[in-house]
Amino acid sequence: METDNRFYILFPNHHQGLRLSQLLRERGIDYLIAPTPRQLSTCCGISLIVKGGDLEEASQVIAEHEIVVEKIAPAPKRDGDWKYRSC
């Protein structure tokens, strides 16, 4: 998946996230399961990343299937090159 113009979809629990990933997969919408970046929430856990261009379709799926979403936010920008760090 391209790295610019990505959005994070956050959930109250992982069940909602996994359900949406299943539905997006069926619809052929590209996504990534990702740990939630600290800039977006202080709690750990899964989010889904979708491309900006797919956001509208993903939102439709969310509405149609009543997926509980905590928030949708643009991926945090990083300044300059990423330098490897250990975790």
Partner: peptide
């Protein structure tokens, strides 16, 4: 620890192309 992992995993793993579903 929780703070660093998402960033590192994002850069090391999620930036890869053509990953298997």
């Amino acid at each position: 620890l929780c703070q660093v992992l998402p960033e590192v995993f994002g850069e090391v793993y999620l930036s890869q192309q053509k990953r298997p579903r």
